[in-house]
Simulated scan of single mutants.
Amino acid sequence: MAYFLQQILNGFHSGALYALLAFGYVLTNGVLKRTNLAYGPIFAFVGQVLILVAVFGWQVLWLTLPATVTLGIVAAFAYAALTATVLSRSVFVPLATRSPNAIVVATLGVALVLMELARIAAETRDFWLPPLLAEPVVFLSANGFTVTLTVIQLVNCALAAVAIAVAGQALTRSRLGRAWRAVSDDPGAAAICGIDVRRVFYLAVLGGALLAALAGSMAALYYGNISFGSGMVYGLKVLFVTAAGSYRDPTRAAAGAACYGIAESLWSGYFPIEWRDAWMFAFLVALLLLTRTGRDEGRATV
C-alpha cells in the first residue's frame, strides 16, 4: 500500500506538468482550431533556455545560485513571450484560414527550428543544474518503506494548482475570459458583437506560451536537464489527451492530463518502463477512437 501511495504522489508531480501544458494547449487551440505541433517544443525550448542562461550566469557572470536561477527563469518567460508573438503574427494569423494541414506543417517546421536552436546553442552538449530543494518530506513510513516527496515537487504541484485555478477563474469571470469563449465558439459573431478577435487571438497564444514556460521552468528545475527531443513527446501526449477530452474547456483538459500523469506513474512503478510510452500512447489512441465514435453516434441520432 505504501508503494502504491508513492507512485500516486509521483504521479501528482508528472500530472502537474501535463495539466499546465493541457490548459495552455486548449487555450491556444480554442481560438486557432488547428493542430499545433510547436506547443510541446516550446515547453522544452523554454526549459533549455533556463538551463543555458543559468549556466551562463554561473560560469561567466559569477552570480550566486539563487541569482542565476532567477535570471534563467526571467529569460525563459521572456523567450516564451517572444516565441508566442512571432508565432501568432507570422505563422498562425497568415495560415489560420488556410487548409488545416498548412498549420500542421508550419508548426512542425517551427518545432524543428526550436529544437535545433537549443541544440546549437548548447553545442550538442547536456548541461545540468544542481539538485534544488531536494530535501525529502515524509508522508508515511510503513514496513521499512518511506513515502516521500521532495520540497521542489511540492512547490511545483502547488504552483501548477494555483496557476490553473487562477487561469480557470479568469476564463470564467473576467471580461477577457468571456471574450475568449465567444471567439472560441464563433469568431464571426464575436466580431459583430464588437470583440477584437485578433487581440483575443494574440493574448490566447501568449497565455498558452506562458503556461508552457511555467511547465518548462518547473521541469528544468526539477530534472536538472531537458533533452532536445522531449518537447515533441510531451506535445504529442498533450495533443492526444486534449483530443480525447475537451478542446473547449481548458480546466477539464487539465484535469484529464493530471489523471494521465498519475496513470503514467503507476505504469512506471509496476510495469517495464521501456514500454510505458508505447502502451500509454496506445491507450490514448483507443480512448480517442472510443470518445469520437460515441460523439459521432450521438450526433447521428439527433
Results as ranks from 00 to 15, higher is better:
L287E: 02
A300D: 14
I164H: 06
V105Y: 12
V238I: 14
Y222M: 03
A142L: 08
A76L: 04
V31H: 01
S265N: 06
V93Y: 09
V69E: 04
V137H: 14
A215G: 02
G144M: 09
L210V: 01
A142F: 08
A286N: 03
A244V: 07
S217V: 13
L129R: 02
G188K: 07
T64D: 13
N36Y: 07
Y260F: 15
A2E: 13
L284K: 03
A38T: 02
L206N: 08
A54W: 04
N101D: 11
V31N: 03
T35C: 05
A190V: 07
W275C: 03
K33S: 11
Y260G: 04
G194M: 06
R178Q: 11
L289R: 02
A2N: 10
L210K: 00
V137A: 15
A81N: 10
L176P: 01
A161P: 05
V197G: 03
A81V: 12
Y39M: 11
F56P: 02
G194W: 08
R248P: 00
F127H: 05
L211Q: 02
L61R: 07
R178F: 10
L27P: 03
Y223N: 10
Y223M: 05
Y270S: 05
L112V: 09
W279C: 15
I73R: 05
T85I: 02
Y39F: 15
A76K: 05
Y18C: 05
A38N: 05
T150I: 00
F77V: 04
A160F: 02
V238Y: 03
N29Q: 14
V233S: 11
T146M: 02
A121E: 06
G261Y: 11
A163N: 08
V93G: 03
A257F: 08
D296K: 12
T124D: 15
Y270L: 07
A191L: 04
V105W: 05
L32T: 03
G231L: 00
I262G: 06
V155N: 07
P272G: 13
L214V: 07
T35G: 04
L9V: 09
D296M: 14
V55S: 07
L9H: 06
L95K: 11
T301R: 08
R89K: 14
T83Q: 06
T291F: 08
Y3P: 04
D126V: 11
A182S: 13
R276N: 13
I73G: 10
V26S: 10
A191K: 07
M232P: 03
V93L: 08
A220P: 03
A220S: 01
R89L: 15
V200K: 02
R34L: 06
R34F: 11
A122M: 09
A158M: 11
G168N: 04
A213Q: 00
I8K: 01
F240V: 11
A244C: 09
A257Y: 04
N225K: 06
T107K: 09
C193K: 00
L211C: 04
L236E: 12
L82N: 12
L63W: 11
M1G: 13
A255K: 01
Y202C: 00
S265Y: 01
L140Y: 06
P131T: 07
W128F: 15
Y234K: 02
G207D: 08
I51M: 08
L87H: 13
M1H: 09
F12K: 04
F56V: 04
T83H: 08
V205K: 01
A219H: 01
